[in-house]
Structures are given as C-alpha cells and as structure tokens.
Design a binder for these strands. Structure first.
Lengths: 208, 208
DNA sequence: CAAATCTGAATGAACGATCGTTCATTGAAA
DNA sequence: TTTCAATGAACGATCGTTCATTCAGATTTG
C-alpha cells in the first residue's frame, strides 16, 4: 500500500480520506446555500446538517465551531472567481483580457446567489476580525491582478483616472460590482445593456 | 387642553404622548448602536432593552416584534442623509451643490458606524421582502434628487457617461460609497486624498 | 493471507444558555 | 375613573456544543 510512493513525500490518499474530503466539501457547499437563503446568523447548524443529510454531531467532526464554518466560506473564493483571476494573469492583448474580465465579473455578481453571499460576507467582515483579514487578502489579490493588466494597457487619448493603477482597479471593481448587483435585484432584464454601459464607464475612466 | 386647536385637525400632544415618542426614539437610537456593533441577528431584544435602560416587556409596547424594529431602522434615513437630500434640491450653482454633496456623502459613509449599518441593511434587504421595498424607495429618492442636479449641470467638454442622468447618479453614488467605505475600514488616514480622487472620478464621468 | 487491533467518521440524545414573545400586575398621567 | 406605559417573571422553542457509543475501514500483528 505504501509502496506506491517510494519517495514518501506525499502518501496516496486512502479511501477513507477521500470520502472525508468529499464530505467536508459537501458540507461547505450546503452551508453556502443555506447562508444565501437565510443569512449566517439565521442559519442553524441543524439546518445545515439536515440539508446536507448528515447528523448534527458529525458536522462537528469536520468543523470545530459554527464560526469556523462561516470563516471558511467567507474566505473561500469560488472557482469562478479563481478562473477570472488566472485569466487576468495570462498573456495576450490586455484590452481583450480586460474586456473579458469585465463581462465575466459582471455576469458573476449579477447572479443573485453570488451578490447575496458577497453582501453577507461584506457585512460580516466589517464586524468580525476573524473574517476581515482573509477577506481583504482575497480582495487585494484580485485588485493586484487587475492593476497588473491596467499597467499593461496602451496609453489612451487622456490619462486614466485615478492615475494610480491600484486605485483605478479598486474603482473599476466597485463600479462593476455595484452595477451588477443592482441588475441582480432590481432590473434583471437590463443585464445586457447595463453591462455595456459599465464597459463604457470603464473605458471613460481608462482615458479612451 | 383641547381648545388649543379649535379646528380639531391636529390635537396638541399630551405630556404622556411626548415622553412616549421620546422613549420610542431612544429605543431606535439604542437599537441602531447595538445593530452596528453586533449585527441584526446577533443582537437580542434583551440587549437593546438593557442598553436603553428599559424593561424587556416595555420594549414590546413600542415595537410589535423584533422584525418591526429592524424594518424601522432599515427604513429610517438618518437626519444627515435627509439634510444632504434637501441640499441637493436647493437653488444655486449646480456644480457647487454637487461638489458639496460629494464631500458630504463621502464623509458620511466614511464614518464606520454608517458604513457598517449600510452594509448590514443591504445584506438584509437582499433576503427580506419586508425590507427591500422601503430600502429601494429611499435609495431611488436619493438617486432622483442627484439626477435632478446632474440634469442642471452645464455641458462639459465631452458628454457624461453614462448619458442617462439616473444611471449616472447611480454610478456616482456607487463610486463615492464604495471609496468611502474602503476609507472607513482599510486606510482611514487617506480620507482627504481619496475624497479628492473620487471628486476627480466624478468629474471625469461628468465629461469635464 | 488472516486475525487482531486501532482509528476516526457517524450518530442522536442531552445540556445549559439564550432566544422572541406573552402576560398579569402596578402606578402615574389623562 | 379610565388609560396605558412600565415591569419582570414565565413559556416554549431553539440555539451551539458536548458526549458516550457504534461500526466500517485502515493498520499492525501473527
């Protein structure tokens, strides 16, 4: 059994460890759904356990406390967001990459479940020192990746505003996120045109 | 006593009615403080009653349920915000009025307690039909007032972006609010310069 | 390879605390 | 005399968490 990896650095996962990891992942996914529907503090551990189809006690084998579960979800970036981030870091025409990012990020936040969870995490991060750290780390990473692309952009007719790429990245994220969130809850029908308008706003700030 | 208003439309308030109104107002203010510190659903009715210095039962003489109290706070606009709104509606140079509004609204959201409460209300509104209505009403009123000023602005070097005054007002509110909220929690020291940058962003979108 | 041992995931009852809400009662203002 | 703000005990429900127990799978031993 252990002969599979003679170097011994990484043991192969046993069947049990795999199912445990899957179980844990399933709990996180279920909790995220509950949190979107009811909010962090209106969701009970029993709600999550019941919906995940496991016993109450077993949930505590995977997460020490409810707070730890909340922190995990608040910290965890979704795969979608991670994909966007790596797309930002790829080679290629910066203008095309940026356009693609705007469309993707807008579509992401325009999905109500993402907008709700983001709002919930934001509110929680403002009160909980446990969460604000990882939350800001995540956000700063995304802003850094976006700022890197902005630095690669060719000069437009006028200089960007704000001139500092990081501040520009922050402003762009704010504008896209807010517009998309509005689409998610007020006028879902206008998603296409609102996204187009947002792209124009971005272009204006970039100096084109 | 009742002779004060012979037309009988508006009776004078009795001593008791006055203290009752004051008590009610005091509860609202105390609840707001608790909600900022602990969030809506981590604050108990007992917390509020204790901090307000009244009995648990008496609180229920002024608010039917905890939800009603939350709804009242989520709906209630602060005096500051109402002042800004009426300043927007005043006569005078639209450019000066707009500049003043940007500074005031930025300073308002840059105060952590206002930023926290706004985030909490936003998250709650996304899940509670009870709250989303009044919340959107308030916001739309503010946007309307801002859009009215934007319509009065003289034409700049280039047309505004977005061209529609209402969408421009929404975008401006988003940008100011997000930047100010960032100042409140990340780099409180940069308030002056960040506000100045925000003003530049606004000018850029307006077309100057 | 088979038997014995160990490990830790899984269970659900139970605990004490706290939750939102109700209610009989009191006392001061109308 | 009537009205109603004010009180705090009490209620049932639910909360997060703990715990003894079970048992399948991993590991060690013979």
């Amino acid at each position: 059994m252990q002969g599979d990896d003679p170097r011994g650095e990484e043991r192969a996962l046993t069947k049990r460890e795999i199912t445990t990891l899957e179980r844990r992942r399933h709990i996180v996914e279920t909790a995220a759904i509950c949190f979107v529907e009811q909010g962090f503090h209106q969701t009970s551990i029993r709600d999550i356990a019941k919906r995940a189809g496991i016993s109450l006690g077993n949930l505590y084998n995977h997460f020490e406390t409810k707070t730890a579960l909340i922190a995990e979800i608040a910290t965890l970036e979704s795969e979608d967001l991670r994909d966007m981030q790596s797309a930002l870091a790829a080679d290629g025409d910066p203008g095309a990459i940026l356009d693609r990012f705007i469309a993707d990020y807008f579509a992401y936040v325009a999905r109500p479940e993402n907008a709700v969870l983001a709002a919930e995490i934001t509110a929680e991060a403002m009160r909980s020192p446990q969460i604000v750290g990882p939350y800001l780390d995540n956000r700063r990473t995304l802003i850094g990746a976006l700022a890197a692309i902005l630095r690669r952009m060719p000069e437009g007719a006028t200089p960007p505003c704000p001139a500092d790429p990081v501040q520009l990245a922050e402003t762009l994220l704010d504008v896209i996120g807010a517009a998309a969130s509005r689409v998610a809850f007020e006028d879902a029908a206008t998603q296409e045109t609102t996204c187009a308008t947002t792209r124009q706003v971005a272009a204006r700030l970039l100096g084109n």
